[in-house]
Each structure stands twice: as C-alpha cells, then as structure tokens.
Amino acid sequence: MIIKTKRLILRPFQQKDFEETFAIYKDEQTCRFLLHEPWKSDNAHEEFDKKVLKNILDKDHTLNLAIVYEGQVIGDLSLWYTEVKETVEIGYSLNRSFAGNGFASEAVHEMIHQLFYELGVHRVQVNMDARNTSSQKVCIKIGMRKEAHHIQDYWYKGEWSDSFVYGMLESEYFEYN
C-alpha cells in the first residue's frame, strides 16, 4: 500500500528507514505519551524490524506505514482493527523537528479517507493520553469528535492517566469532506 498526499508519501517501512525511524523513537519527548519507552541502541533494531513486518492491515494484523516527506521518514502511522465490528484505530508519531507543519493531520486525514473509501470501514478512532494536546489538535483539525474522557483508566509509565477517545463515522466523514 502506497498512498500519496499533496506533500507526503505513506508506505510500508523498509530496512533503509532504520536511522530516520530510530531518530523519532529515541526521543523521550516523542515517546512521552506512547505505550513504550524510548528506543535504545540495544533494542532499536528489534523494534524497527517489528515495524517492517507489520505491512498488512486485516483483522489479525497491524499495519505500520512510514510518513515520508521529501524522501525522509518523518513519522509513523499505525492502524489496526479493534474488537468492534468494522472499526479501525489509528496511532501516529512524528519526528518533533517536523511538528507544527500539518504533516500529522495530512497523513491521518488521507488514511481515514482510504479507510472509508477503499476499505469500507464504518468507524475510525484514536485513543490517546489526555495530556497529549498535539494529538488532540490533529483529531479536531480533521473533523473527529471527542467521544470519551476516561478518568485514570490507564496505568501508564508509573502513574494513572486519563485518556480521550476521538472518533469518526463513515457518514460523518462524507458530511465533513
């Protein structure tokens, strides 16, 4: 699966993407709201290889796509089916050097377009740490609505954390776009 937007290419990870991907995930600020710790030199290749292998989206597999801008991997887009019928969850990370330029919004918006138009998904959702204001802005910008605010529902890196769920139905996407 290769998807082109106005400025980006979304494609499966390739072995040549290791260094640029490591630059994203070794950053403590980037990983602050992710479910894993920053990558270290001793585990980075193993973690990256998992991303390369996740190159198909179906009921049993997660899809990881590199977000590429001007030939450089600047982010990661992950998609997986939830246990709810025809619902896909999206996760995304961006190299902080490229934050604030609308790249995450552009990538997520196009992925949602593909999910609704090409795969016939009924609903898309994003779950996030409630403190992740950048991710909230992405969801709002592309027309998702906040569906839930769970209070201290997740034990997260040594503390209880609130979480937000943003969602969009196929019918809402067509109204918004």
Rank of each mutant, 00 (worst) to 15 (best):
D27M: 07
W155E: 02
K59P: 00
H150C: 07
M128A: 10
N132H: 13
I112M: 11
L169I: 01
P12S: 14
K137N: 10
N64E: 08
T82I: 02
E89M: 01
T5D: 01
S135T: 06
Y25N: 15
H45W: 12
S93R: 09
K54E: 10
I151Y: 13
E172W: 02
M1R: 09
E86W: 02
H61W: 05
D153L: 11
V68I: 10
K50L: 12
I90T: 08
E47W: 04
A107S: 11
E70V: 00
L10S: 13
F33R: 03
Y81K: 00
K26I: 00
G71F: 06
N127R: 10
D60Q: 13
A148E: 01
I2D: 12
E170R: 13
D76T: 09
I56F: 02
A107I: 00
K146V: 03
E46A: 09
Q15F: 14
Q125D: 09
K59Y: 00
D27I: 08
L57R: 03
I67P: 08
G91E: 15
V108T: 05
E47S: 13
I3H: 07
Q15G: 11
N95F: 12
C139M: 06
N177E: 11
E83F: 01
S41I: 01
L35W: 11
K50V: 12
Q29H: 07
Y176N: 13
N132D: 15
E20S: 06
G75R: 04
Y117K: 03
M144H: 04
T30Y: 12
G120K: 05
D60S: 13
H150Q: 07
T82Q: 08
L34G: 04
D42A: 09
